[in-house]
Design a protein around this nucleic acid. Structure first.
Lengths: 259, 259
DNA sequence: CGGCAATCTTCCGTATTGTGGAAATCTTCT
DNA sequence: AGAAGATTTCCACAATACGGAAGATTGCCG
């Protein structure tokens, strides 16, 4: 093996998958892939073609590449064990705080809820797992943004804009950047009725070892997610984030990034 | 490139990921990986080590390998676009039949619900997306089993047994194999209160181009999922399976496999 | 429609990377 | 402690992957 990284061509294949994932849902051309990975265009083309034949990438009509279904399947298989291991952590959050706990993953330009332990209260925030949500107006979305490099955030905002779910949703880029800065400083974010009127949510980001990004959150109605509960919940939440990070391949919460 | 498959080492890396995915949640050793892929043990070891350094595999304390979180992330990113494209198909099913429609993926040894369009009826089957379910006693599970090679089915059964959710759940391997044979013959399966008392579900398998397996289903309470509705729904369901297969990288429904 | 620029695709000589057999090491069981 | 099986390391070498160059395609503009 040349160095500690193992097989060069396998590493390059994953770099190409990352570049395509970062390129957004409209697809990524060979020139952009080559630029993002530092590979020659013909090399990038050949590896991308291999990934297409393997079902990990697909070709769009305009010759761009997008992620494909073999990754869905492998991801689901990988998630089977990892999320199962996160469930007890979420469960303890719920038992301690009495509110719903969620785990989300950054999925394209949106947040996808991948696990939820519901609150025992009859009135609770109802989040369908598998549902995708905007990044700018959800706790988990803002938490995950805070774990991304600035240029990645800019690319996402350029593609998605800042969709409005309620009158409280963040509608100005400056306000979102301020939220991100605050999240980076204190390690958690608050969704103050931005996703849904009457609902409040706190969330903490989790960074995986390879650029994968998640968030864990606690959510419920405004009447119960008081400032006192938030104060009590934050250390538990950030502790849960750390614990889940450890379960997801020994990763750690993100360091602050003063880009 | 040697042949049409592209880079040999990238193909081998994915073959190793498949072998680890097929090996179950307890992990897979180098010798088993080498046997499953036909590679030399030292080659398999080196590629697996590369995948560990990339975050696609992780090492267990007993030196076995398991799928890791980079695949969750890539899978979620890939799912972002693919499932979005399947949602209109599910929606049309619901609008036509008036019952909930679901999309599930084979996730480890279980079925994971990845999308759901709920029925407009106030009493409906409530399936939390992201929830995992047993393969032997769910429509989507049995449908997906029917799309797998027999030896893969045997390995799954050996690991999971045949868990019982209701008194109707399939508890004998012979009965499950008969269900699988029937599913292969007609292209869809029926869950007759096996997952939940009072609930009925029909499901059709979808095979991806690279061994990835999904199922689309229509479900509801016994009182509404009548034989007449099933008769009416089956061609719509299998048509939806075909359509979703086409959206998931041009794949087609599985051919019968008379192993 | 033609021209142009940008992007994509193919080809090929070659050197670098990946290979697999053999040996060494580790782990588990009796 | 010994044996057997599994895992890991090493290294010579050949086969695979590489990238530059040339050719092909696409989209835009006048």
């Amino acid at each position: 093996m040349a160095g500690d990284g193992g097989l060069q061509s396998v590493r390059r294949a994953f770099a190409i998958l990352d570049a395509v994932a970062a390129g957004g849902d409209a697809g990524t051309g060979v020139t952009a892939i080559a630029a993002a990975t530092g590979l020659a265009e013909s090399t990038a083309h050949r590896i991308a073609a291999t990934l297409v034949s393997l079902g990990a990438l697909r070709r769009l009509p305009d010759r761009r590449y997008a992620l494909a279904s073999r990754l869905i399947w492998l991801g689901a298989a990988a998630a089977s064990a990892s999320i199962d291991r996160a469930v007890p952590v979420l469960t303890r959050l719920v038992e301690t705080l009495g509110e719903s706990a969620n785990l989300a993953v950054l999925s394209g330009d949106r947040a996808e809820y991948v696990a939820q332990i519901p609150s025992p209260h009859s009135m609770r925030m109802f989040t369908e797992v598998g549902r995708r949500a905007e990044l700018n107006c959800t706790g988990v979305g803002k938490a995950m943004l805070s774990a991304l490099p600035d240029d990645r955030i800019e690319a996402i905002i350029a593609r998605t804009g800042l969709p409005q779910k309620t009158e409280h949703s963040i509608s100005e880029p400056d306000a979102l950047w301020a939220e991100i800065a605050a999240a980076r400083a204190r390690g958690w974010v608050l969704d103050e009725q931005e996703q849904e009127l009457g609902m409040r949510c706190i969330a903490a980001p989790i960074a995986g070892p390879a650029g994968d990004v998640y968030a864990v959150s606690v959510s419920g109605p405004l009447t119960r997610i008081t400032d006192a509960l938030i104060e009590r919940a934050v250390p538990l939440l950030t502790g849960a984030a750390e614990e889940i990070a450890g379960l997801l391949d020994g990763s750690r919460p993100p360091r602050n990034r003063p880009d």
